[in-house]
Design a binder for these strands. Structure first.
Lengths: 184, 184
DNA sequence: ACTAAACTGGTACGAGCGTCCCACTCCTCC
DNA sequence: GGAGGAGTGGGACGCTCGTACCAGTTTAGT
């Protein structure tokens, strides 16, 4: 199994999914280095060899975990924004599972060194931009939308890493959204 | 030597510095995981045991390397901005050593999991904000300055990781700077 | 000149890693 | 119901890692 062809049997597919979930969980808890074959297998309650049976290499496992993480994160963000609006994002950032987010960013930065991951990283950015454009009812390729996303993501990362008081982030976020909504 | 007291002898201090430089270089080339005792020692042309003699642990070595990296990066940025101005930053980002920058960001994200590194990360942000405030002749605690820094850093990271066309980054950067300079 | 501390460098240890191997069992399809 | 592929799981290999050890050498202070 060199490429990614899903296992033909039902149980195999389930096992593969279990491993992937375990990998994502480990990634979001201990970051990057925590995703080892043994740790994944142990967490999934499967023997070690299952990891190499369903994934050709650790890199492939990580890439798929990243893709899945991005996917779920996008849908989570989508429902949150439609429910609470953009400005309340600061609270979402403060509330959300820190380690999960850190794992996501860790992989994002790592994507700079790996073309496969880079593609997934772009998909993430595009997804977020699309999401914001939808919320603001702007065309998705509008530079201001693009800029707003960039700013929001940076605020997010900064809050995540440096853990400054939340109200600062909220203030900055408000200004950023104002900037993105030019005189109508 | 549990804490960080500089070696009393001249040669010792030189060796310690050599090791630190080697660690920074490795960090900027292979990222994070590349900074092992053996790799550092080999690069510094010193025996393995020198690393554990001058640094209590790998964590300490990494922390000091991060601090040094932040320091030099800040001064580099300072001279570049005073020479070429803020808008030309996009070119700087495109020109600069990608791996070096990636290493820096890698550690930045990792700082979210480590209080010691977190402090250094804050110092970095504060330094950059101070720098931008100086350039724009604004008070350093002005929210717009703070926001501009955040946006710039995000553009920087995005360009670094996703490697999109540079002119996009330049466009966004220009808008961001406009936003930060309100109607005077 | 002598002593104590700083320093040196080769080596060893135990652990964890990715990956591979292989005898075995189960399932599916003819 | 038998063959063959899919799946299973225990173990092993070769490697690198952080760290510790220690006999020896250099240096600084008296």
């Amino acid at each position: 199994m060199t490429s990614h062809t899903p296992p033909p049997q039902e149980r195999g597919r389930r096992r593969r999914a279990t491993l992937l979930t375990a990998a994502v969980e480990l990634l979001t808890q201990g970051g990057f280095a925590a995703v080892t074959h043994r740790a994944v297998a142990h967490r999934a309650h499967l023997p070690l060899a299952a990891t190499t049976y369903y994934f050709t290499s650790r890199d492939q496992l990580l890439a798929e975990a990243f893709a899945q993480l991005v996917q779920t994160e996008l849908t989570t963000l989508h429902t949150w924004i439609t429910d609470h609006g953009l400005t309340a994002l600061a609270d979402q950032i403060a509330t959300a599972d820190r380690h999960r987010q850190l794992g996501l960013w860790e992989l994002y930065v790592h994507a700079g060194r790996d073309p496969v991951l880079q593609q997934i990283a772009r998909r993430w950015t595009d997804g977020c931009v699309h999401l914001i454009a939808q919320t603001l009812a702007h065309p998705p390729d509008h530079p201001r939308v693009r800029l707003l996303y960039t700013t929001v993501s940076a605020l997010w990362l900064e809050q995540l890493v440096e853990q400054r008081p939340v109200h600062e982030t909220r203030t900055l976020l408000t200004i950023a959204i104002e900037n993105a909504s030019p005189p109508t």
